[in-house]
Amino acid sequence: MSALARAWAVCAKDATQELRRKVAIVAVFFFAATALALVSFGIGPFGLRAEDRPPLLSALLWIILFFAAATGLPRAFVAEEETGTGLALRKTIPAVYVLAGKTLFNYILFLAMTAVTIPGFMILLEWRIGSFGALAAIMVAGGFGLAVVSTFLSALVARAGQRNVLFVLIAFPLVMPLLVSAIQATNQATNGQFPLDGIRILIAYDGAASCAAYMLAAVAWED
């Protein structure tokens, strides 16, 4: 059976589990919705000057996406440890497939989250997007890096104390370059440009993070 099918089995397992339990998925979307409501209530559609809107809204969008992701994505491995299923997983499945499957699930979760948050942003904050293609490319490239890094770090913190604080603490400096590039690129996309430069950095980041996670998967997850 191919490696992809095995990773997919893990991803499908996570998806089914989360859909049946609902807590994590609801929490992520609820967080995104709350933050969105808060921002739009605070700023409103006309609370910002026209020239300030693209950079500020881009930054706000990614801050919301990052923190919403930080409530949901680290569950990947943390949940396995909390329910005690980590042993069964480690006993039967190589770490790389587990990591790949969970990354895939987190990636899908992130994309679903953006698919809900971005229209919300457009409606509530009068956010006009110049280039939808560019925005989609940023979300696809940026979300992947975010999913890879969060999932990998989730494996690291799964068996440590104070996991949630720890996760944000160790994730923040690592995803900072990704967030900064994504925010700048989103700003350009809002203005109708295609942010080739930013997307190049995002893809490079994705590649570096994936390779590092692949090499270190067994170290992070197995005993």
Binding site: K13, T16, Q17, R21, L87, A88
Partner: peptide, 8 residues
């Protein structure tokens, strides 16, 4: 301490 998935 082996646990399997409760949702399944």
């Amino acid at each position: 301490d082996l646990a399997l998935y409760g949702e399944f």
